[in-house]
């Protein structure tokens, strides 16, 4: 198939031209695009970075798919994505790509019940709710997990993200991991075919529907839930511990073993204190930076930026409700960044 020119690619080209012109005047500037989930923390990091080093970084939050497409088309310096590139898709890229994890996030289950009780749920029960198998809040399966609560005889109204999103990807990846029925009937993707429930756009849309619909249950990003003080469920992780979603339990989820290329689904972590619905978000760049007439200066700027994000930049995460990378993730990132080359020579 001929590659489609997407509006986002055009926008990126346009930005390249504009920024290219600006760059010609002196200081290096970098362009990235992709996932909207880390966009707030990236804005903060890039703002600080510009003040400290003079290197301007422009990040367009056009969504993970768009970011991957832009890096594939080589119209940006780096792409941001909430999901890693699958093995089968590597050959679509004109060069070898590498994933550098930047921050971790979590997906929380939020609900609207009279009296806002503190709910405990297992992955299996969450899957059964979103499959439409459990339809009432006083179902025995929920009640047995919450013996101290008097749950109402209220229909459950599942709410999901109508727009394709990394949040949906991670949430369904978790349900995939814990429920065989979910895996065979629905599966995991940025948008899936939901058996029951209603859709709403973005975190704010889901939270809005949940807020005004008694009996509803939805999923949003941890950062969004924290900032808006939503009622969130504790989830039992694979070690059998009840885990409150928090920045600490998110970082803990990533503390386990990390593959060399960092391409790992953090869901259903085996870390005993880790929250089970967590995910990394990545910046994706080419391993060999000498392509398309790029200068060594530009390549060096990319590598320095990545190093800064995974080290000094991490201290800005908590204030914006993102979880910093675990030590094992930082170690893996260091090795990857050192492996990035310009004309075959390492830049760090």
């Amino acid at each position: 198939m001929k590659k489609a020119i997407t509006p986002s690619a055009l926008a990126a080209v346009f930005l390249c031209l504009v920024l290219g012109a600006a760059g010609a005047q002196g200081a290096v500037s970098l362009l990235g695009s992709g996932a909207s989930f880390p966009a707030p923390i990236y804005s903060k990091m890039f703002d600080v970075y510009a003040r400290e080093t003079g290197v301007k970084v422009n990040y367009q939050a056009i969504g993970s798919s768009g970011g991957l497409k832009n890096i594939m088309d080589r119209v940006v310096d780096f792409g941001g994505s909430d999901s890693f590139v699958k093995d089968a898709d590597f050959s679509k890229y004109p060069g070898t790509i590498v994933h550098i994890p930047t921050v971790a996030g979590a997906v929380v289950v939020t609900y609207n019940l009279p009296g806002s009780p503190k709910l405990r749920l297992t992955g299996d029960v969450v899957a059964e709710i979103f499959l439409g198998n459990i339809v009432k809040w006083n179902d025995a399966k929920i009640a047995s997990l919450n013996p101290q609560l008097k749950l109402p005889n209220l229909p459950i109204m599942p709410v999901y993200r109508s727009d394709g999103s990394g949040t949906t990807f991670n949430f369904t990846a978790y349900l995939n991991a814990v429920s065989a029925e979910w895996k065979s009937k629905v599966g995991s993707a940025n948008s899936v075919s939901w058996p029951v429930g209603q859709g709403a756009a973005q975190n704010a849309g889901v939270a809005g529907v949940v807020a005004r619909t008694p009996g509803s249950v939805g999923y949003v990003e941890l950062a969004y839930a924290n900032q808006n003080k939503l009622a969130v469920a504790s989830i039992r992780n694979s070690s059998g511990n009840w885990i409150e979603p928090s920045l600490e339990s998110t970082s803990a989820a990533a503390a386990g073993s990390m593959p060399k290329d960092t391409r790992i689904l953090l869901v259903d972590t085996n870390a005993s204190e880790g929250y089970p619905i967590c995910a990394l978000t990545w910046i994706i760049v080419y391993k060999e930076q000498n392509y398309g007439g790029r200068t060594r200066e530009q390549a060096k700027a990319v590598v320095d930026l990545l190093w800064w994000i995974t080290h000094e930049g991490q201290k800005y995460t908590n204030a914006l409700d993102y979880a910093p990378l675990s030590d094992s993730a930082v170690k893996a990132a260091e090795a990857i960044i050192k492996g990035i080359t310009y004309g075959g020579a390492s830049l760090r």
Partner: peptide, 9 residues
């Protein structure tokens, strides 16, 4: 709803 984050070609 779905175009921005289309899953596949």
């Amino acid at each position: 709803s779905q175009f921005n984050e289309a899953e596949s070609d």
